[in-house]
Nucleic acid binder design. Sequence first.
DNA 1: AATAAACTCCCCCCAACGTGGGATTGTAAT
DNA 2: ATTACAATCCCACGTTGGGGGGAGTTTATT
Lengths: 218, 218
Amino acid sequence: MITNTKYSGVISIAIIEDIDDIRIPMREFLSSCAEFLCDIDASSVEEFLEKYRDDVQLDVILLDIGLPGISGLGAIQLIKERIPNCLILMSTIHDEAEKIFQALKSGASGYLLKDTPLADVKNAIVEVYEGGAPMSPPIARKVINYFNKNETKITAANITTKEKEIIAQMVDGMSLKMIAANLGNSVETIKYHTKNIYKKLHVNSKTEVVAKSLRGEI
Amino acid sequence: MITNTKYSGVISIAIIEDIDDIRIPMREFLSSCAEFLCDIDASSVEEFLEKYRDDVQLDVILLDIGLPGISGLGAIQLIKERIPNCLILMSTIHDEAEKIFQALKSGASGYLLKDTPLADVKNAIVEVYEGGAPMSPPIARKVINYFNKNETKITAANITTKEKEIIAQMVDGMSLKMIAANLGNSVETIKYHTKNIYKKLHVNSKTEVVAKSLRGEI
DNA sequence: AATAAACTCCCCCCAACGTGGGATTGTAAT
DNA sequence: ATTACAATCCCACGTTGGGGGGAGTTTATT
């Protein structure tokens, strides 16, 4: 990685936010911090991409999620392609789980609600730059709940040992015939067990069993 | 929920930690905070379960992950069963991704590294009590990276948009007929695309496509 | 001794799936 | 203009899978 850092220790940032009443004070505040160099502010992704110069290092982008034109969500991938080493800190008014996960999957490194005080935004930028993943508390809770949900049901259905073996084979893409061969049973035996598995999991196809299993819902 | 809170606004906490040099100062510090009531400290899960009385409300448990006997990881489920409304804040020296995810899946609500300053531990307890999910920065980064990984490889094989739609339907457990209905095509069209999907992914069943997809191998 | 709960295996039936062709349209690239 | 390819459909064939039965074993629990 080639570093074009102007002054070591200074974090180069950009702000993309369409609402002037948020963007302008934000830029003024962050520019006043000795830690930051606010090279760019833009009211849209399109504007940002015009202003951005590839030879200038950019460390962190503060990106609004609800932008006109290219949405913040779509922008993540664009930005990551063009500036792979740039960290993206999302800022949003909504705290919809869907959008949060989409953003994180696309490559965002942190997630702030718009009511975050400026001082905390400053800390968040430093934290993300230092390898953390700042999230406003309600966001963080949603993220960890994502994990919770999945495995709470682990004891839900009482899957027997044999059934677990069969499920494992299914996940490996085996046909019932192959499972029978692998486990030393007749196909009919495997069929019998799959019927019970389906009843316990409330599904009616191998595919759904595999999906549930890989999602950790078994 | 029946609250047995002794004084409103006070957070009732417990500490489970086997190392005296950590547990004792921790308890002293937290007890000195007006916000907390530290009812219980224990050097093992077994000891905690003995000391715990069901009629006394407990809001937050600070739980060491590497305990002798019942591990902190195993303890999460035990505690959640007995005290469902109690929040669990894990504390650990390791930051292994595996254990973090296991803990979060089991029901932990936050995750601190053991080098966290006492003042920050205090803030973390308040944060988790107020609905947040405090995580030490390296932990938070691991958690968000978990999301990143899953969707980066989507461009590996050159799967077309249509094919992606169909794969998504497969993952949702749809039959080819249902997929056809949902996407407004004939079953034959869906069959045509599945053939191509199978060739591209080198598989020969829906089940394997679902498995690959959920493993992030597409 | 009786009951329940896994596990084993068999039958039939029909729907769903996987594989092999082939035909047509439209669009994008050369 | 030609090639290439995604996308839309169709037919036919054999295999696999899902649902409904039933019958026997063992093991553990009551």
